[in-house]
Amino acid sequence: MAKRIDVSGLTAFYGAHKAIEDISMTVEPRSVTAFIGPSGCGKSTFLRTLNRMHEVTPGGRVEGKVLLDDEDLYGSGVDPVSVRREVGMVFQRPNPFPTMSIFENVAAGLRLNGGYRKSELDDVVEKSLRGANLWNEVKDRLNKPGSGLSGGQQQRLCIARAIAVEPRVLLMDEPCSALDPISTLAIEDLIGELKERFTIVIVTHNMQQAARVSDRTAFFNLAGVGQPGRLVEIDDTERIFSNPSVQATEDYISGRFG
């Protein structure tokens, strides 16, 4: 089941460099939340703190709290590996495993984690590929390498791979920025379907995309050059795009800066 995310007072560092500061927000289950803001303001960094991928970067460090329903992801004794099973991620560039077939790519999460029954695997793979709207395109070549697909198909393969492990939350970091408009549309449609089952957070540079797919939108900005990124405001997408409460948001959306 989808879960709610509750962030409070979150600050993240790369070594001594403070990338984002004091971010608090709530993300409702079964909703789509879009992060917008100029490059370098820490959207990716913040996203990666939500499934503890931030600390994979050498020097990556986090202060503050992230509650998934009522469990603190950064609590002592919480295993980052188990956090990542609950909070899946799709990256900017499609990155299927090059040594694996389409089938193996989707099954990777289950296989490499163990604890599945062989008979389940076929079902899970089919269900995930259907869930990613890719089944009809690849059902005849499940044993072909995943890298042989087009960019848009590869990205949907990565989404199928992510949802195959049944996460509660799906994080997407600019999932369409390497794709053509048709593939982008396919993924946007998919996001609309996936939000029935998952809590979705998506970073995007495309205002129309944020307006089309999201229920809530968060605007991030830098307080100044060399300063850490901050959350400026988060509100219903409609309000952000029609009548934001902060001037900077309106300037950014209307293209006056950024």
């Binding site: 499934n51 994979v56 188990s82 609950e86 495993f97 090059p98 999460g109 984690n113 492990v165």
Partner: peptide, 19 residues
Amino acid sequence: LREASLALGIPKWRTILKV
């Protein structure tokens, strides 16, 4: 590729071994 694997909740040693 390492990040993709880690983000699936696969432990680091298995990521190295299998990916």
